[in-house]
């Protein structure tokens, strides 16, 4: 059990003791994700040691939202996080790039290791963490005051990075997000002029422009039509050459289509837990836990 961390400005919540007691009382269901190591994505390159969550808990004020999640995200893979609403999968995702702490009252415990280093370690430059662990949100959120090109390159400005060739980077990122052909003639148009699906791919291109090691996607297709969803899924499959993708989804077909590994989260009224994690084909064909089976066969959730 590691120390409970509280974030600045949120000192008014629960005592550390209460945290620990609550955490200890949780049954140890989640198993360390000993994901099959034989599985490796085609064309994967050495990408460092990847991302690893160890004993992650999360709180919102007194509400214990997530208990003891252990999960590995190996290089060159897509991991889908599935589970019913309120099971803590989005919360977990946001602990992975320290976006969790923006919510007032948020606290966490455990460790998130990026290339072996804890991203919550005191003295860590949080902006650097978010450069390495990018994020795509549920609702497409391009910057409306910027053009398409400016949107893609906005990360460079925001993080005060320097690039030698912006045009190449722009084209490369739009290509990788599968948007280049649709926007190459109107790079000076405003981001808001695109359709919802195009906007979301613009957000992916924007996230890729800062060269992240990990890309977190929080239900990226839930606001989109099936056609756009398919395009984004294709994009995700191509991304694994260079980034680790973690995708939260409510759509089990999507999880089956895009991911190599799937983690199933569930809350039984208490904090959300990671029930099972395995290669995606196994989760959907031979789930070990009866609750996983009930969920993936559509009997609840």
């Amino acid at each position: 059990m590691s120390d409970v961390m509280e974030f600045e400005g949120n000192k008014d919540n629960i005592s550390t003791k209460a945290y620990l007691e609550e955490a200890v009382s949780q049954p140890e269901i989640s198993s360390l994700a000993s994901v099959a190591s034989h599985h490796s994505a085609p064309g994967s390159q050495p990408l460092g040691t990847g991302l690893e969550a160890r004993g992650v808990h999360a709180w919102f004020g007194k509400h214990h939202a997530l208990a003891d999640v252990n999960l590995d995200f190996p290089a060159g893979t897509v991991t889908a996080l599935i589970g019913p609403s309120g099971c803590g999968k989005s919360t977990f995702l946001r602990t992975l790039n320290r976006m969790h702490e923006f919510i007032p009252g948020a606290a966490m415990a455990g460790e998130v290791l990026l290339d072996g280093k804890d991203i919550y370690e005191p003295g860590t430059d949080v902006t650097k963490i978010r450069l390495k662990v990018g994020m795509v949100f549920q609702k497409p959120n391009p910057f409306p005051s910027m053009t398409i090109a400016e949107n893609v390159l906005s990360g460079l400005k925001l993080a005060q990075l320097k690039t030698t060739n912006k045009d190449d980077l722009l084209e490369e990122c739009l290509h990788r997000a599968g948007l280049w052909n649709e926007v190459k003639d109107r790079l000076k148009a405003h981001g808001g002029s695109l359709s919802g699906g195009q906007q979301q791919r613009l957000c992916i291109a924007r996230a890729l422009a800062v060269k992240p090691e990990v890309l977190l996607m929080d239900e990226p297709c839930s606001a989109l039509d099936p056609g756009s969803t398919l395009k984004i899924e294709e994009t995700v499959r191509q991304l694994i050459e260079s980034v680790i993708v973690v995708i939260v989804t409510h759509n089990m077909q999507q999880a089956a289509r895009v991911s190599d590994y799937t983690g199933f989260f569930l809350s039984d009224g208490g904090p959300g837990q990671l029930i099972e994690t395995a290669p995606t084909s196994e989760i959907f064909s031979r789930p070990k836990d009866p609750r996983t089976e009930a969920y993936v066969t559509g009997r609840f959730g």
């Binding site: 902006t127 949100f137 391009p142």
Partner: peptide, 26 residues
Amino acid sequence: PLDRIQAAYALGATRWTMIKAVVLPF
């Protein structure tokens, strides 16, 4: 809008660069 602020932070923005890119134009 909070989602724009979060988008900026998720791209590695500092508070000041976020303000310049999101808050002041808005």
